[in-house]
Nucleic acid binder design. Sequence first.
RNA 1: GCUGCUUUAGCUCAGCUGGUAGAGCAUCUCAUUCGUAAUGAGAGGGUCAGGUGUUCAAGUCACCUAAGCAGCACCA
Length: 637
Amino acid sequence: MPNITLPDGSVRKFDASVTGLQLANDIGPGLAKAALMVLVDGVECDLDHEIKQDSNVSLITRSDDLALKLIRHDCAHVMAAAVQELFPETQVTIGPSIENGFYYDFFRKERFSQDDLETIEKRMHELIDRDDKVKREVWNRERAIEHYKGLNEPFKVELVEAIPEGEVLSFYRQGNFLDLCRGPHAPSTRHIGHAFKLMSVAGAYWRGDSSRPMLQRIYGTAWPDEKKLKAYLLMLEEAEKRDHRRLGRELDLFHMQEEAVGSIFWHEKGWTLYREIEAHVRRRLEAGAYREVKTPQLIDKALWEASGHWDKFRENMFTAESEDDRTLALKPMNCPGHVQIYKQGIKSYRDLPLRMAEFGSCHRNEPSGALHGIMRVRAFTQDDAHIFCTDDQITSESIIFCDLLRQIYKDFGFEDIHVKFSDRPEVRAGDDSTWDRAETALRNACDAAGLETTLNPGEGAFYGPKLEFVLRDAIGRDWQCGTLQVDFVLPERLDANYISQDGSKCRPVMLHRAVLGSMERWIGILIEQYSGRFPMWLAPVQGVVTTITGDADTYANIVFEKCKKAGLRIGKDLRNEKINYKIREHSQAKIPAILVVGEREEDQGTVAIRRLGGKTQEILALDEAINKLVQESTPPE
RNA sequence: GCUGCUUUAGCUCAGCUGGUAGAGCAUCUCAUUCGUAAUGAGAGGGUCAGGUGUUCAAGUCACCUAAGCAGCACCA
């Protein structure tokens, strides 16, 4: 005789157990029709799940956020059903919902083509219109394994075998299609709706393991309604327009070519942007009492062996031989170098915390498939620093760092940040008690800094746990940039010491930290964030002086020189072209301000400023205009 | 690295079933001196990613290599 408490607090009493659907009917037929699943004390269940005890229950319809996951998962099932109808020789494996959609991994000798995707999509619409009932069944292991063996579905057999003894094995049947699945699902296929689209097919390793067979993964996107689907597709188009690789070329920022795969040729404008970003971070670091250093590019492999990197990352390190037969490695990171500087002279507890920063250019031989524009390259520069401190200082240093990080992100227009806590990986250096200490210290620091974190299990660095700072850009994409890592291992391995208050020799802790991550990737992110329309202080060219006709050339030159003298990054365009033509060209080059001068401006000693994207102009006295632009070009305080 | 796809002028792309390259924009030249997102005319520009093969004949077909793209794996 369950008492059902609904989200609005009202309670319904039933004489016997009740299904979600019966409950929905009891509330109203409209709800019964719209309901997709039921949430019983926070657990997602099918609509025909029997509720036997007093519970808090809410019925989920397609307008709920939770429904999205369900619709996508259902969509994955329908896709698998469609594929098996069309291509019966295909083996099905797994198909979850993911951010923005779903996928399903198939094993099939022949490749799915783009045309196949269209055929599959068409069949999916038909299956949805068929409105097959979706029914849950519970099987025992032996039956499940026999079933899949009989169908020659070895991947499914493996899945069943991997499910721990004692766990319920549920299957879902819709029409002729049956799939091993935890559920829940909507009661019939029509609930999926038609706001979905198959996007692409690509390879994916079975169980994410590169030593195992490669399956074909079909990706799709699905939404509660057409409008949301369209909005998503539009967002993808927008992302493509913002692509830093396209804008990098269009705005003449950089290029890349075959002879230097994974390295960037920075053009003047891109390098200006780079230097401006570096200068800003440097200002913030100086204010934060960091000491900037520079360490060697090539270091004997002996140091990398001592640090442990050679063991773990040898494959990804570029090496060179010197005439005395030494093997040198291009540094893939800066920490061992920083420890060498730290170790010069005896350090006292009075020297700690010691914040050692470097814009460290590193080389890593990334696998070819990992390269992506300037976001993932083989030669990059970290805004790196290592804080050498005592155990007691970990918390305060972490808090100070988080403040710095938030400030810098804000300077670049990012305010939406979340933090991931990555704990010990399977393969690691240092014993468990050391890891206990490091993880506890970092957790305490998070608490003290008031950071909310999500756990990222097993994703820590091999020498210590880490925080990863993820920011959200203007079109809702997440980028992992900053990091803070606690390291008790490297100081030990490389024998870094300090003399404590009581005269004894102690190990410092190293905090590895970066805000931007890599300069190159950061610039890629900024290009996409701003869509190439950089704020004045970052814009490679802040303004262009241009003329209505050649009569204004002399005055334009005066304006240009004055702007230059005031420190503005200014260009001039005295070509004999129509003003429309020149406005269009500089607008397309995304120059923030166009300073137009003609006869009128010359007579009155003014300039007409037209802002990027604006339709109007602002007429100001020359000095006033320059002051204003200089003001706007000042980096964030 | 793995799977698939792609590679034609600086850029975006066309080139049917093999018969020896084309457009728009950009560039250059000339004319035009014009008030806020394209002035007109003309010219130049390509070992069709590289290589090997099939063929009387290859941008087009096959194979190899490289790079790029998407995803997977990797990411100190």
